[in-house]
């Protein structure tokens, strides 16, 4: 854990030398600053999820609409590449910060209690609610992401036969999605990952807002309910897509 943490510090040590970046890096080296970054990267990834889900909902509109959308997206070329790189960087930053802050907290309690009970109301999720599952659900989602990229970005799943591009060079993205999702391995893995995503977001969104200082007694109930609705709307939205595709293949 310590070694990992030191590796996570390398970018900070290099960046602090870049002119003008000193105050930013100094802020990001504190526990509070890291949580702020964690929140910002997390919310950015939520933004990506929204666009990704809206794209996927086009599957309901049928093969033509979905393929047209995929074609349009891929025709963006350099812009799309830049977005992908940005997304990857955001994801890695989020992961790195998670490791760094977790290491900080592990060190802060070197000796565990023999007995430890919560004083909070009972949680829907065992063992102290979603907030105690952030690292595990996050890593689960990360693992899923690798599979998802292998499946549909690089299209190199060894057990699947991908349809080849048609003569005019267009790809049938719709057929590929159907092909991947109808494999039982993907179905189970995607389903589990989406539930993990729902759990992760159900704490993550609200926690991100709190880390950014968004809290007011008058608005906190709305923030709490809104975050929960957002989290499960995203997760269930994807689950609907998954279910629908599987039922229709």
């Amino acid at each position: 854990m310590d070694a990992l943490c030191r590796i996570c510090c390398i970018p900070a040590e290099l960046l602090v030398k870049v002119p003008g970046l000193r105050p930013v890096i100094r802020m990001c080296c504190t526990s509070v600053g890291q949580k702020v970054l964690m929140a910002l990267t997390g919310l950015a990834l939520c933004g990506f999820l929204v666009t990704h889900l809206s794209g996927n909902l086009l599957l309901f509109a049928g093969e033509e609409a979905f393929n047209a959308y995929a074609e349009k997206l891929h025709s963006m070329g350099a812009l799309l590449k830049a977005a992908e790189v940005g997304l990857l960087a955001t994801f890695l930053a989020h992961l790195g910060l998670a490791i760094s802050t977790t290491a900080m907290s592990r060190r802060a309690r070197s000796k565990q209690y023999a007995q430890n009970e919560s004083k909070q109301e009972a949680f829907a999720i065992p063992n102290g609610g979603a907030s105690n599952w952030m690292l595990l659900t996050g890593l689960g989602i990360g693992a899923f992401l690798v599979l998802h990229l292998v499946d549909l970005k690089f299209q190199v799943r060894p057990d699947l036969v991908y349809p080849s591009a048609s003569q005019d060079g267009t790809n049938n993205a719709y057929a590929k999605v159907k092909l991947v999702l109808s494999s039982p391995v993907s179905f189970v893995a995607y389903g589990v990952a989406l539930i993990l995503l729902g759990i992760h977001l159900s704490h993550g969104v609200r926690s991100a807002l709190q880390s950014l200082g968004v809290s007011h007694p008058k608005w906190n109930k709305l923030i709490e309910i809104g975050s929960m609705v957002f989290a499960w709307a995203i997760a269930l939205g994807f689950i609907c897509v998954l279910g629908w595709v599987v039922l229709n293949s």
Partner: peptide
């Protein structure tokens, strides 16, 4: 905040157990 970090306290995960305790 910087003293808090130097003392070796952990990083907040907004779990709210503190408030309950």
């Amino acid at each position: 905040v910087s003293q808090m970090d130097d003392e070796g306290f952990g990083s907040c995960t907004n779990t709210s157990e503190c408030e309950a305790a």
